[in-house]
């Protein structure tokens, strides 16, 4: 089938970008979306043109490396699916697709469809962990976790850190990402001692990174490839209010 692509081309962070049109006359319906881009790139190289830079690694929907906007939807039209797991059979002959990088002040474009998501790492570094040094753990079964909590914690922990939530959010907020980490750790007994400090630290860091904030719109939830629910944001809000007014989660210097 024939697919027309309009792709954001930007040589580097400082350069100005623009949409460029490419036509692919022979796209096999069994191809994955990224395989289609591979073909395009082989073509471009053949013609001596700079191939389109895009991030990817596992191509199994788990590493969180891939992703771009396809016709204004993060990871494309199929819900619960990363770009690498999206197959061309979900498109029609003659479709025109607009590919753009994630856009947010906190995610500057590096080149073409590649963006810098290191802000997510800094959010985790600020508090998205349980402080346990290697070797100091008790037996695994010494800590009992009700199955329902373990399951809900796992639901939140499934986040792959791809950034689609930020990309799709009209406010470019990282709330779903943060909420997922806070829920993952906050639903487990191991995560309780640092619960107050974690939310305060991550919240403060998100502001330093210039992410927007949540206004309960829900576009993040709609495009999350791992189906993380908006409830995690409510949990984060609750944790924040608790930590702020009741908890002892004061951060020095904040």
């Amino acid at each position: 089938m024939r697919i027309v692509l309009h792709i954001w081309r930007q040589a580097n962070a400082a350069a100005a970008g623009r949409m460029v049109r490419y036509e692919l006359p022979n796209v096999n319906t069994h191809m994955s979306f990224l395989e289609m881009l591979d073909i395009l790139n082989e073509d471009l190289i053949g013609r001596g043109e700079d191939p389109v830079a895009f991030d990817h690694d596992c191509r199994e929907g788990i590493c969180g490396m891939c992703g771009c906007m396809v016709n204004g939807v993060a990871h494309g039209p199929l819900p619960g699916t990363t770009l690498c797991q999206l197959h061309m059979r979900h498109f029609k002959d003659g479709d025109e697709l607009y590919l753009e990088p994630w856009r947010a002040r906190a995610f500057p474009v590096v080149k073409d469809l590649v963006v810098d998501r290191s802000a997510f790492d800094r959010l985790i570094a600020a508090g998205g962990f349980i402080s346990v040094a290697t070797g100091s753990a008790p037996d695994g079964n010494a800590i009992l976790v009700p199955k329902e909590n373990a399951d809900r914690s796992m639901d939140a922990a499934a986040c792959i850190g791809c950034g689609a939530c930020v990309a799709m959010c009209p406010n470019a907020s990282a709330s779903l990402f943060m909420g997922a980490k806070l829920a993952h750790l906050g639903l487990l007994p191991q995560g309780q001692p640092e619960r107050d400090r974690r939310v305060m630290a991550m919240e403060a860091q998100a502001n330093r990174e210039l992410f927007g904030s949540c206004t309960n719109i829900g576009e993040c939830e709609a495009v999350c490839p791992k189906d993380i629910k908006l409830e995690v944001i409510a949990r984060m809000n609750r944790d924040f209010l608790h930590a702020n007014w009741i908890g002892r989660g004061g951060l020095k210097g904040d």
């Binding site: 016709n71 204004g72 753009e100 947010a104 406010n171 470019a172 992410f211 719109i217 829900g218 576009e219």
Partner: peptide
């Protein structure tokens, strides 16, 4: 604040239907 969080708009942006009121 939220407007500043995305200085460059999308060329094309779809909206999730359920979020109309929001």
């Amino acid at each position: 604040q939220n407007r500043e969080a995305r200085p460059l708009r999308y060329y094309k942006k779809a909206d999730v239907p359920t979020s109309y009121a929001a």
